[in-house]
């Protein structure tokens, strides 16, 4: 398995050490480099190009210039609906899952009896396969015999027809996502455990209250982790698809027609691949812009030790 079986020995012998290293480095990277070209760079360029074309399932793609974009922005009445739905979902689910995940982690990071048990209880729902989880929640959200409305009934509240009413379907889908908050919790927990204990001890000796220690030590030292999760959370929730596809198919009255579901319909149900590509490119720019904004803002709230190593 040595390199000499792959390349002419004489040529290899003439190479200097540095050249050999470079050759080997790229050789090892080559699967990834090929994959990068085929599965990432090519698709990004192609989706940009396809956005300017009309491309049905049969026949050849034809150039239509900016027509797809013009249609999306001026004629497509559902585009704004779907954008609004998606922003609603992102605006609700990202902060909620961050706050809940973080608070759970803080609670679990105290001296607890049965800490592992608690950690498992909160984490396990996040590994339940998504489709199974959605089926389960469709059952839990059943308007007449669902467990959730039964619980609300016990509290004296009348539960809504969750997935059947436009104003309740989106919150229901947010709740489904929050069930999986345990994954984020584990990340926060790891972050909390890596905060040096002596900082807290020093602050305690100086007479800092617990609240103050939380605000002045825990929060600042957790900002890099929070930042990372925020970015991943935004990118992920902009692409919400499976929950809506399985639970509601975008209904009722398009109230859960999220962006990717809409794109999927154009791409794989109506086979208007050019139009769907234009939609994809718009989403890409949107997510990119938002990511850049969050990155920009990070210098004012993300705290890096030793003067920002990144």
């Amino acid at each position: 398995m040595s390199v000499s079986t792959l390349v002419p020995a004489a040529w290899w012998a003439r190479l200097g050490q540095a050249r050999r290293r470079t050759f080997l480095g790229y050789l090892f990277l080559s699967p990834w480099l090929v994959g990068l070209l085929a599965f990432t760079l090519f698709p990004i360029l192609a989706v940009f190009g396809l956005g300017f074309m009309e491309y049905g399932i049969f026949g050849r793609p034809t150039w239509v210039g900016l027509e797809n974009y013009r249609d999306i922005l001026t004629n497509d009445r559902l585009f704004l609906t779907t954008l609004g739905n998606t922003l609603y979902f992102v605006a609700l689910s990202v902060p909620l899952s961050t706050v809940i995940g973080f608070l759970l982690a803080v609670a679990l990071n105290t001296r607890l009896i049965g800490q592992t048990l608690f950690r498992t209880a909160f984490y396990v729902p996040s590994i339940v396969p998504q489709v199974a989880a959605v089926l389960l929640f469709v059952w839990l959200f059943h308007p007449q015999i669902g467990l959730i409305n039964f619980a609300l009934d016990l509290l004296g509240l009348e539960g809504p027809n969750w997935l059947g009413r436009p104003q309740w379907a989106k919150p229901a889908i947010v709740i489904m996502g929050l069930w999986g908050v345990g994954g984020g919790m584990i990340i926060y927990l790891a972050g909390l455990q890596s905060i040096p204990q002596h900082l807290y001890e020093a602050a305690e000796i100086d007479g800092a209250t617990e609240m103050r220690r939380f605000l002045m030590i825990t929060i600042p030292l957790m900002t890099p982790t929070l930042f990372y999760n925020l970015i991943i959370g935004i990118i992920g929730s902009f692409q919400v698809f499976v929950t809506a596809y399985v639970a509601t198919q975008g209904g009722p009255l398009n109230s859960t027609l999220f962006y990717v579901l809409y794109l999927y319909r154009y791409g794989f149900e109506e086979f208007r691949l050019g139009y769907a590509s234009a939609l994809a490119w718009i989403l890409f720019l949107l997510v990119l812009a938002l990511t850049v904004v969050v990155f920009r803002s990070s210098s004012s709230w993300v705290y890096y030790e030793s003067g920002g190593e990144r």
């Binding site: 990068l36 090519f42 698709p43 989706v47 989403l283």
Partner: peptide, 30 residues
Amino acid sequence: IRFPGRDFLFIVLIATIMLPGVVRLIPTYL
């Protein structure tokens, strides 16, 4: 392995982790 271009490519790798997967859906399908 130390070689020129490695650190740049590593940044590319991290950028691809963050790339929204839906962008490549249609071209990859085609």
